[in-house]
Design a protein around this nucleic acid. Structure first.
Lengths: 135, 135
DNA sequence: CTTATTGCAAAACGTTTGCAGGTTT
DNA sequence: AAACCTGCAAACGTTTTGCAATAAG
């Protein structure tokens, strides 16, 4: 990955705006320091930074993705009242307690695991070729 | 909620297609039994069925929402290889073990909790009026 | 008869992409 | 000079919406 002023600026903004900004918010702040910057470039750079593992993507169901400078594993609480997204430190054993938490009022939990299903893992073991490989 | 042929058909399809269908897939199957049905109507009915608690929405990051007839709490595994979405029975204490599961290979976990953050819960307790209430 | 629901088409939304020109190495 | 990166604008896929017509209670 080659250096670019725009990418470093995007990286800086994700670090500066600690409140899980959207691409749009990052753009609005970054364009002040780099007039002419385009939203498309912000999206492209967010994608490469996520791919490079320098930032994390935080998908909020039904809304624009948000981005997070914190790399360590954690969940997010989207407040259905004020719309704020806050960090929730969570490592498995804490989940059960969390769901009964007194402070936050958890109404629902949207969790999607990404990985390979048992069928694909099994297929790879046996033939080193996956079931229905795609793009 | 008034009865409608289209809504019951959508409900039927979500129950029949157990593999977490998208709105598009539900439409393609339903239109066979109801020529002239429109995709907009399918979306509208999926929304009211979710709101009524008769079905569940399953958001897959970066993809179209899927829908699920199972109401009890569970997570979903989106296989990054074959694209299939399967159910994962999961109740807190199982999470830690699951993340080290031998069968499925979990690469990432996208979890968003929905609820009210401590600030909003606190505000409601004190003044019975929330911080920045919205729609 | 009143009002929810429909089909249609247009638009909204977040995001990606093709291209021609500019920047980095 | 080669490859990458940019701005711009157009296009994308998913979902929502305004409207006049239809169907349910």
């Amino acid at each position: 990955m080659r250096y670019s002023k725009q990418r470093e600026l995007v990286m800086q903004q994700v670090e500066a705006l600690q409140d899980h900004p959207t691409a749009e918010e990052i753009y609005e702040n970054a364009v002040k320091q780099c007039p002419g910057l385009s939203l498309g470039t912000v999206y492209r750079n967010l994608n490469s930074l996520v791919e490079a593992g320098r930032i994390r993507r935080v998908p909020i169901p039904g809304q624009a993705d948000r981005f997070d400078h914190t790399l360590r594993w954690h969940s997010h609480l989207y407040c259905t009242e004020c719309g704020e997204v806050s960090d929730v430190m969570l490592d498995g054993t804490m989940l059960q307690g969390l769901l009964k938490d007194q402070q936050a009022e958890i109404k629902d939990c949207v969790m999607t695991l990404l990985g390979r299903c048992p069928r694909c893992v099994g297929a790879a073991e046996q033939k080193a070729a996956p079931v229905q490989p795609e793009e």
